[in-house]
Design a protein around this nucleic acid. Structure first.
Lengths: 353, 353
DNA sequence: GTTTGCGATGTGAGCGCTAACATAGCGCCA
DNA sequence: TGGCGCTATGTTAGCGCTCACATCGCAAAC
């Protein structure tokens, strides 16, 4: 047996007594191989512990089994969960996943991330970066590279898999309205995130549909810190009874801020989050929130991307059919309640715990 | 200009009026090219927007610029943060990162993850899976594949980058002892995680050094849910004054449980977490915890791995010199305090809020 | 009995690059 | 002035695979 050197296709061919091409055919599950030959080749592969060389295959047929994922460098729950979903789904389809995190969220940052991926000869790219600048950068992408985007509703530049943020936000706000709240604040994510826009829109329309006035958006940045700051601000201005937070981390920070100001959740203020992070139900109080199915998003991404990869690049010019959006669900826990008769007034019993 | 087809080395060579080999030399920064020729070639590359083909390069010199990372499929903060650190560091060194999540944490699971990576022709592998079974699987790895592990102290099978869990746990427990606590419980991670073992050891020795008795370990699974369960258990048995939680999520769940039982943190019970997740300082109360520098871990991983990749496989047989461990730091916030005179007794004023 | 057709296999070229060697051109010394 | 050694460049042969095509049987068809 040959020591050191790993077995290559020719070794298998020799052992099986066929040509290398027949081995290749077996490897690729071509139909034109007789059953007996196929068995013999498969046997030889096993005996030699043959592993096809991905680079040689890729070089020969100009297509790798690698999918690139562009994601954000923050450890945000949403992107991380989506990445996980993608990786799982890709594995099922026989694709590997190579990642490239965005160090700057702007046009050049996206381009360089995309480049670092295409330089690795990926077969296609998933962009998990629901950001305006990213969406714009995607328009510059040559149509020869197969790409799908997550959450970036970018008029047809590339197929997009998205969670219906508007519907999710509506559910959150309608829940608060049903409880009897007449004024619902919104602490949003960064304004240039597409999810932020969708959630704001859902919040506005839900309010409008109920004939209610939407106060000014308070902009956060997804972090607990920014939620805390927003909470402090709302506490200071008094008589807040309901807040829809752009995500669970901000909701968490906000709860902290209210707590410090002696405002009880949900007795004085109701809070709804977004995402349903695993910790949400163990916060004080357990958080009412909107759950997104990131696994489903990952699956759809890969399905769409694989379809794209396997169609001829020339046919990709045709407008990509819209993929139906994933609908989030409302999870009611204990951070929301009917407003108390009076609402709270600012600073009614500050304690710093 | 040639439409459709991307420029290859020969196109550049022709345009620059040199041979393809000279282009290759320029590409690889070989010294034996005259300054003027180099300029000419570089120019041609720019003009044609030449991008070297990674698969061809890899095939020709039997080495890709891809690093594989085996990680856990849970969205745990630690592994996710480490992955991020690795990806950043790898980018700096000119390597791409391909990931493979472990769907089962056992021998076969690790092997299949490793295989899916080597099938992608990665140049080396980082294993972020601080788990006994993983450590054992790594022993079976042929020495021809360059590998480093994170957090798995596995007697020399592969070089290991690790955070000093024992020291971190000691800091946590010593902090509690200094505050005056005489009995410190520990809610650990899953028993087969190496980090769990380290933290238990640190907790035990810190207690022993202070002449204190270590109660039985309460085993959790890193989740907030398990911390909650542990908290309920501790609340039921009464007179707990201090708990060292294996991570922040469990600390969070525990705080919730205590809260439900009317036990105040830190007034009645002090809690220390581990990791310092970004939300830790906005919990109620802000969590005293142990911070790990995952970025540093990532950097050291890549440094060690690249060294390994770039040394001849035959020289890899020599025992890998131990890499110094990363030391975690104590972050004191508000979840710890001196024990109150009496300690708390069980169920002293349950409220469910 | 020759032809046609088709399923099973083999052959050669080439994917885009690098390693190893070959060669050309130059200045330098004896 | 020939020969040496040096540097800058070109040439050739792969890396391990797949593609396109050629070939070989063997059965059905005339």
């Amino acid at each position: 047996m040959n020591y050191g050197r790993a077995a290559v296709m020719n070794d298998v061919a020799r052992l099986a007594g066929v040509s290398h091409q027949t081995v290749s055919r077996v490897l690729n599950n071509r139909p034109e191989v007789s059953e007996s030959t196929r068995e013999r080749v498969l046997d030889a592969m096993r005996q030699l512990n043959y592993r096809p060389n991905a680079m040689a295959r890729g070089l020969a047929n100009r297509r790798s089994r690698l999918i690139g994922v562009v994601t954000l460098e923050t450890i945000l729950y949403g992107p991380a969960a989506t990445l996980l979903g993608i990786e799982r789904a890709a594995g099922v389809e026989g694709y590997g996943v190579s990642i490239s995190t965005l160090e700057r969220i702007d046009h050049d940052g996206v381009l360089s991330a995309l480049e670092s991926l295409t330089d690795q000869s990926v077969a296609g790219v998933v962009v998990i970066a629901p950001h305006g600048a990213v969406a714009r950068a995607l328009h510059r992408l040559p149509s020869s590279v197969a790409a799908v985007a997550v959450e970036a509703e970018i008029g047809g530049a590339v197929p997009t898999i998205f969670v219906d943020q508007v519907a999710g936000a509506r559910k959150a706000v309608e829940h608060l309205i049903q409880l009897g709240h007449r004024k619902v604040w919104h602490v949003s994510g960064p304004p240039d995130w597409l999810e932020t826009r969708g959630r704001i829109e859902g919040w506005r329309t839900a309010l409008a549909d109920a004939g209610l006035h939407a106060p000014a958006v308070i902009a956060g940045d997804w972090s607990a810190r920014s939620g805390y700051a927003a909470g402090l601000q709302l506490a200071a201005q008094g008589n807040t009874t309901a807040v829809f937070a752009g995500n669970d981390q901000m909701a968490l920070g906000m709860i902290r801020a209210f707590h410090e100001r002696g405002i009880r959740v949900p007795d004085d203020v109701s809070i709804v989050g977004f995402d349903d992070i695993p910790e949400a139900m163990y916060l004080c109080p357990p958080l009412t929130t909107i759950r997104q199915d990131f696994d489903e998003v990952g699956r759809r991404c890969i399905a769409a991307l694989v379809r794209l990869i396997e169609t001829d690049p020339r046919d990709r010019l045709s407008p990509s059919e819209p993929v139906p959006s994933v609908t989030p669900t409302l999870i009611v826990r204990e951070s929301t309640a009917e407003p108390c008769a009076a609402g709270h007034s600012a600073h009614n019993s500050p304690r710093t715990q």
